[in-house]
């Protein structure tokens, strides 16, 4: 079974080497696909030096756009499964096998910070936004998730193929993607994982921006039923 790690990276040359060496230690057989999302700090050089496959975008598309390219590559290369991994050292490479084990009885697995480690801390406004998102996802999908915005996720090939054209590209895309996958008829489940605090770089949680995207997300999720369906044949059965 061929497995690929998709690592979207935007100016992560500082934290990437450790992330890649951790992955090489814990999951040496996986192909590492770094998506260089228009970096100017030599991220691509760092990635290739570490022996990773690196796709360079000509300009910054944002995490959703970078992920979509990753899904597309993984789908074209016919990998059996893939997982998303953070370039900033937030995720723990030793948790990858646990995450992938979740794919035994699901099409998509979300690694949750809160299901297993209740002491993972987030700021006040962020915490509130997350609580609201949890409630909303529950109302829309009928399924409870403790960590809707987790970026530590694994996917079977049908989901990869679906996301290679349909992955949402706006900020806070992971919540949208979660609901989208369930609407498409994929089974999604959550597994507890341990995460680190972000080692380098700051989380993009400027409040105003967060508020705007939160409202945008509400609209998308509530109005999502009318979303254009594309190429669904043979995927949801």
């Amino acid at each position: 079974m061929r497995t690929a790690a998709i690592i979207p990276a935007f100016d992560e040359a500082d934290s990437l080497p450790r992330v890649l060496s951790d992955l090489a230690t814990h999951v040496p057989t996986h192909e590492i696909v770094v998506i260089d999302d228009g970096s100017v700090d030599g991220t691509h050089q760092v990635a290739t030096d570490a022996g990773a496959t690196c796709l360079r975008l000509p300009f910054n598309l944002g995490i959703g756009g970078a992920l979509r390219l990753g899904f597309r590559y993984v789908a074209e290369q016919r990998f059996d499964r893939a997982y998303q991994f953070d370039a900033d050292g937030q995720h723990d490479a030793s948790q990858v096998p646990d995450l992938l084990r979740g794919l035994d009885d699901a099409d998509m697995v979300v690694g949750s910070r809160f299901a297993g480690a209740p002491d993972y801390r987030v700021g006040h406004s962020r915490g509130l936004a997350m609580a609201l998102l949890r409630l909303l996802v529950y109302r829309v999908s009928g399924q409870r998730f403790t960590d809707t915005s987790s970026g530590f996720r694994a996917f079977r090939r049908p989901v990869v193929e679906f996301f290679s054209t349909e992955y949402p590209v706006e900020y806070m895309e992971s919540v949208e993607a979660l609901v989208l996958a369930m609407r498409q008829g994929f089974t999604v489940r959550e597994v507890p994982v341990v995460m680190h605090d972000r080692s380098a770089g700051t989380a993009s949680n400027r409040n105003l921006r967060l508020a705007y995207h939160f409202v945008r997300l509400l609209i998308v999720l509530v109005a999502g039923g009318k979303r254009r369906r594309v190429r669904t044949a043979g995927m949801a059965q």
């Binding site: 290739t48 796709l55 975008l57 390219l69 590559y73 590209v169």
Partner: peptide
């Protein structure tokens, strides 16, 4: 967006 994807794929996966 899709042109950017195509370009990244055409540049080739460098290792």
């Amino acid at each position: 967006r899709s042109l950017a994807e195509e370009l990244a794929l055409l540049r080739g996966p460098v290792s």
